[in-house]
């Protein structure tokens, strides 16, 4: 027995409320972040991730309040992403009780920021979030590019190469989202997940597309992810985290039950 694979419910937060975008439009309300976080903690979530989905456009201090309130009651690791652009943003979130921050657009704009952040706070709390979209045509060798600003802005950067570079710069973990799959409930892009996971030494969290429990298992077994992240499958009570873990355990994946 050894290290367990992790299940991470993700709470997309907009103005202090949990929401889930389907392909980043058509948002449904799924509740109060503190109550949702407590519920997931009781269900056996291994970590919880909060993504401030509007922070790229507007600065919002409400996220700090949310993190403080959750961290006072929920004693499992918390990650915060969305609009993390400066050393001060990171310090504020860590002081509020976050264990890790996820850096996305700011890493693309200024890769040195990742290096600076890792040096200052340690790689263990620096997650680089990568939003990748498949750009190869059918029949071609698979290739993905990274996109920023909620998947709207192409960068021309190869996703696998970018992941390697970010680890060289000090990222302690990669949060990998398939923009093609996000919100579609058709499962992770397993080829993307596996390509990145095999290319880096740090843990990779698969994200984007979970529609059923088997998708989580596939992310670990076929995608070789170290952790799997999902939102809507848990938010609307379709499945509990516990059910997901039991399903994974029944297929010989080591989990914390």
């Amino acid at each position: 027995m050894g290290l367990a694979k992790r299940i991470i419910p993700c709470l997309d937060v907009d103005n202090g409320r949990v929401v889930k975008g389907v392909q980043f439009v058509d948002i449904r309300d799924a509740g109060d972040p503190i109550e949702v976080a407590k519920r997931y903690n009781e269900q056996g979530a291994d970590e919880i991730t909060f993504l401030d989905i509007t922070a790229t456009h507007h600065n919002r201090d409400t996220m700090v309040d949310v993190v403080e309130a959750v961290a006072s009651q929920v004693f499992i690791p918390l990650t915060v992403g969305g609009g993390i652009r400066t050393v001060e943003d990171i310090r504020q979130m860590l002081n509020a009780g976050a264990d890790k921050v996820a850096i996305n657009s700011a890493a693309v704009t200024n890769p040195e920021f990742v290096r600076e952040a890792a040096k200052k706070f340690g790689s263990q709390c620096i997650v680089v979030a990568i939003d990748a979209k498949r750009v190869s045509a059918e029949g071609e060798a698979a290739k993905w590019e990274i996109f920023t600003h909620g998947g709207r802005k192409p960068t021309g950067i190869d996703a696998v190469e970018w992941a390697k570079k970010m680890v060289d710069f000090g990222a302690g973990e990669i949060l990998l989202t398939s923009m093609d799959r996000d919100g579609t409930k058709s499962g992770f892009d397993l080829e993307l997940t596996r390509s990145v996971s095999d290319a880096v030494v740090v843990p990779v969290i698969a994200s984007g597309g979970v529609g059923k429990l088997q998708d989580l298992t596939d992310g670990i077994k076929i995608g070789r992810a170290d952790a799997v992240l999902a939102a809507s499958i848990f938010h609307f009570g379709e499945h509990t985290v516990q059910e997901a873990k039991q399903q994974m355990a029944s297929q010989d994946i080591e989990v914390r039950l």
Binding site: L3, A4, D46, V204
Partner: peptide, 20 residues
């Protein structure tokens, strides 16, 4: 030092998550 699991694949570093 890049620990190797039973299946021959390298384990990830940092050692991150819930272990016994």
């Amino acid at each position: 030092d890049l620990p190797v699991a039973n299946n021959g694949r390298h384990l990830k570093v940092p050692h991150m998550g819930w272990n016994e």
